[in-house]
């Protein structure tokens, strides 16, 4: 699964640590999700989308449609 976390973070001017604090996970976990090394659970994906005030499909993209 692909995502736009890096771009969205850059738009907001947030570091990985800042986003991690907002969704209450570790910075390493945000790094793993952002780089596509780990697919988050739905609750975590929703929390990340909520942090950016976006819908989940605006943050996470299916690989065949990215």
């Amino acid at each position: 699964m692909n995502n736009r976390i890096r771009v969205l973070r850059a738009e907001k001017g947030w570091s990985q640590a800042e986003l991690a604090a907002r969704v209450q996970v570790s910075r390493n976990s945000i790094n793993a999700v952002e780089n596509g090394k780990f697919d988050p659970s739905l609750p975590l994906a929703f929390r990340i989308a909520d942090a950016f005030d976006l819908k989940i499909e605006d943050v996470f993209l299916r690989e065949d449609r990215s």
């Binding site: 209450q24 996970v25 570790s26 390493n28 976990s29 793993a32 999700v33 780990f38 988050p40 659970s41 975590l44």
Partner: peptide
């Protein structure tokens, strides 16, 4: 105290 990535 671990999150889901750390638990994995």
């Amino acid at each position: 105290d671990l999150d889901e990535v750390e638990l994995a």
